[in-house]
Design a protein around this nucleic acid. Structure first.
Length: 763
DNA sequence: CAGTGCAATATTTTT
DNA sequence: TATTGCACTG
């Protein structure tokens, strides 16, 4: 135990050893948040305050829950079994599998990923003859997920106009269709288990009595439903409710766009009567100038719980800022700087290049490629999302639950087996008419179409029969063969990679079986019969309790478990550790990571902060938090850059430099290129002098795009009485009639007569 | 039923 | 600029 608490700073120690009451830990970037969380669990167990089965620890990502698990098993001699550690969705899946009956689901219910969900909505809109111009499938999906994320069923959604009433109706129909197919989307996992526990008193009381300590990571990212779920699980408001230990950072809340509600932190403080609010403000990551920049920037946000990071490290290097003439030149500069960092001995994978949106990576990638610098882009296609893997998974899904129409449609004619649009139309009509799944509707289709469809059914049944007693990996192999997927890709010229991916599915199954305890000595899957009692807890009359913490193998078949795994864990999208390559990613993707050197690129009005953020309530504040996250990724070196000209959607755009530059402390900065004139000070003039080549370059470019005869030039910064700062994007006409297209950022693009408009030169 | 071509479209994203 | 979905043709 001495060991456990060793090396914790006073705040961390206080947090770890808090009494069993609800607490809110405001954990700044780089303050040892994960360490506190895991040590808290270890300490609670080691001091005998709680048994492992009394712990519920929730995270958002699989990566975070795995890390927690790994750290815990390193800290504790006992095994981590019995503890509930996982993602919200993973835990809900487990709960619903164990209590599928009470939850009103088939035992083999399957999980739709967002792709499946969208295609299902498209299908639904088509069969209902809904105008998809007026109701774009994506919007319908956002509406449905938005409602579910607030814990609302269709009946509970208030609609004030016809448009929304229609959306509510579609939501209801969608839910009905999911129920018929035996599928649940991500939000449904949460909502269904929430409803299960709120309706079922014995179950609720069972879990409430069981979990004594509930710990939540990244609490600022919880949505309304997750918060309600936590309240229910912890028995909030009850006399002997669990102690909830919520760890989060309101300044790093960057997911409002997908329903996260930072307000949950304040609500938590009130509703859980938090008496212990602990701030972890000691930062172990970044040098002083970097931290000062982060602190000064975030102070511009109004709604904060309040927190200021400090460090014992010295000031370190200043934050270097570079103004490029174009996105190409920006990329070039990043390469030059990286080269000198590497020459100084920096590891390539300790250098990160961050951008606001994915589209920005292309130019940078191109430049890196030309320069021969290895790099890795985060966030590409993930394993289980690849088309060929999804196809194979669809066959497996049909074997486990043939009523999954999404899976059916994905592979009924892939590889092609002569089932075309006509046949499917007939089938869909039959299914619609009898209100059954496509699979079940096959016998209702007559003629040639009927017999080809029946051939497909026999294929699925055959594979199911052939593999029913085989271990999972062999089952996968049977599917690969029976589906003719392998032969299909063998005949395709670009098929080699796909075949490799398909073969990997067999090893993925093997690995899954051994890791998740479905191996040879796994407890027997209880099967439908043994679970006839549904949730056995309910009876409480001697029937053995089937709690959701029973080994996974007892509540679901290996196949069901593997399919859940494929949906819930889309697979790796991280760079391989140790790979010696520059790390390219969006700022969002960088959250939680840290690097010796970080480039924040494209710091321009309209890009970062993004133009769309101006519309959303609190949008700019979220962008500022995003910037805060970006800054706090850096340990020793931080670079920021922006470009005057940028190719965006095939058009050249002119942007002002980001307002965030005006929110940073001058003393921490070093401008490598001239700041726009009206902001110049003696300090920056000398900074300018440090880098004569950059300045020379700047002037050269200005001359190239110049329109010198009328005193104004394209790319020049100007100020207007009413519209504020802008950039001349184009000039038409000449002499006395010259008119200029000027981008005033927030005020949009204006066409002004240069002879009439009173413009002030800024550059 | 497959391949070709045109038009629309375009933050951030985990589960 | 790139992708992606849909309509049309062979």
């Amino acid at each position: 135990m001495q060991n456990l608490l060793h090396n914790l700073n006073p705040e961390q120690l206080a947090a770890v050893t808090l009494p069993s009451q609800s607490a809110l830990i405001l954990a700044g970037a780089g303050s040892g948040k994960t360490r506190v969380l895991t040590t808290r669990i270890a300490w609670l167990i080691q001091t005998g305050q709680v048994s492992p089965s009394g712990i519920l620890a929730v995270t958002f990502t699989n990566k975070a829950s795995k890390e927690m698990m790994a750290r815990l098993s390193a800290m504790l001699p006992i095994n981590t079994r019995g503890m509930w550690i996982g993602t919200f969705h993973g835990l809900c899946n487990r709960l619903l599998r164990a209590h599928y009956r009470d939850a009103g689901l088939p035992q083999t219910f399957q999980i739709l990923d967002s792709q499946d969900q969208l295609s299902m909505i498209k299908r639904m809109l088509k069969t209902l003859n809904v105008d998809d111009e007026k109701y774009p499938p994506k919007n319908v999906m956002y509406f449905i997920n938005g409602a579910k994320d607030q814990g609302l069923r269709a009946q509970a959604v208030e609609a004030y106009d016809d448009y929304n009433r229609k959306l509510v109706e579609l939501y209801d129909i969608y839910d009905g269709q999911c129920q018929r197919e035996g599928v649940v989307d991500f939000a449904e996992l949460l909502l269904r288990s929430y409803e299960l526990l709120s309706r079922n008193q014995p179950l609720r009381e069972h879990y409430q009595a069981r979990f004594r300590h509930v710990l939540v990571d990244e609490f600022q990212d919880t949505n309304d439903l997750q918060y309600k779920w936590l309240k229910l699980m912890s028995g909030q408001g009850r006399e002997n409710g669990a102690a909830v230990f919520a760890v989060g950072d309101d300044d790093q809340s960057i997911y409002a766009f997908r329903g996260a509600n930072v307000g949950n932190m304040g609500a938590f403080e009130r509703e859980f009567a938090v008496q212990n609010l602990i701030k972890l403000e000691q930062n172990y990551r970044s040098h002083g100038h970097i931290l000062d920049s982060a602190n000064t920037l975030i102070a511009n946000n109004s709604k904060r719980l309040g927190k200021n990071l400090r460090t014992d490290a010295g000031h370190g290097e200043p934050v270097r800022i570079y103004e490029a003439s174009s996105d190409l030149q920006e990329a070039q500069w990043i390469i030059e700087e990286s080269k000198s960092l590497i020459a100084e001995g920096a590891a390539r994978n300790e250098i990160a290049v961050l951008y606001r949106s994915n589209a920005q990576s292309r130019v940078i990638e191109h430049a890196l490629f030309s320069a021969g610098i290895p790099y890795h882009v985060y966030g590409g296609q993930r394993y289980f999302q690849r088309a060929e893997v999804k196809h194979a998974i669809a066959y497996l899904q049909l074997m486990d639950n043939p009523h999954n129409d999404s899976a059916f449609l994905r592979v009924v004619n892939f590889p092609t087996r002569g089932i075309g649009a006509r046949a499917l139309e007939q089938l869909q009509d039959a299914a619609q008419q009898h209100r059954i799944s496509l699979y079940a509707a096959v016998p209702y289709v007559a003629g040639k179409a009927g017999s080809t469809l029946n051939g497909f059914v026999r294929l699925i049944e055959g594979a199911r029969f052939e593999s029913q007693h085989l271990p999972l990996a062999e089952m996968v192999q049977v599917v690969l063969d029976a589906s003719t997927l392998l032969t299909h890709y063998q005949n395709e010229k670009e098929g080699a990679d796909r075949i490799e991916n398909l073969e990997q599915l067999v090893s993925a199954a093997t690995l899954f079986v051994s890791e998740e305890g479905f191996g040879r000595d796994a407890p027997a899957f209880l099967g439908p019969k043994a679970q006839a009692a549904g949730s056995a807890i309910v009876s409480g009359d001697g029937i053995e309790i089937v709690d959701a913490d029973a080994p996974l193998a007892t509540v679901m078949s290996p196949l069901s478990a593997f399919l859940s795994h494929a949906s819930l864990e889309a697979g790796d999208n991280q760079a391989q550790a140790g790979q010696d390559a520059l790390q390219l990613m969006t700022v969002h993707a960088s959250k939680g990571l840290e690097f010796d050197a970080v480039f924040i690129t494209g710091l321009e009005e309209g890009l970062f902060p993004h133009e769309n953020s101006a519309l959303a309530e609190g949008g700019v504040e979220e962008e500022r938090r995003l910037m805060y996250v970006a800054i706090t990724r850096a340990r020793q070196r931080l670079y920021m850059c922006f470009a005057q000209t940028r190719m965006l959607h095939g058009q050249t755009r002119y942007h002002l430099r980001s307002r965030f530059f005006d929110e940073l402390p001058e003393a921490a900065l070093k401008w490598l290129s001239p700041k726009i004139a009206h902001h110049w000070s003696a300090a920056q003039k000398s900074a300018w002098d440090d880098v004569p080549e950059a300045g020379a370059n700047h002037n050269k470019v200005a001359r190239q795009i110049g329109h010198k005869d009328i005193g104004w030039r394209i790319g020049e910064s100007v100020a207007h009485q009413k519209f504020g700062e802008g950039v001349i994007v184009d000039i038409e006409g000449g002499g006395g009639n010259a008119r200029a297209h000027i981008n005033f950022g927030r005020h949009g693009m204006k066409l002004l007569d240069l002879g009439v408009a009173k413009l002030e030169k800024l550059g």
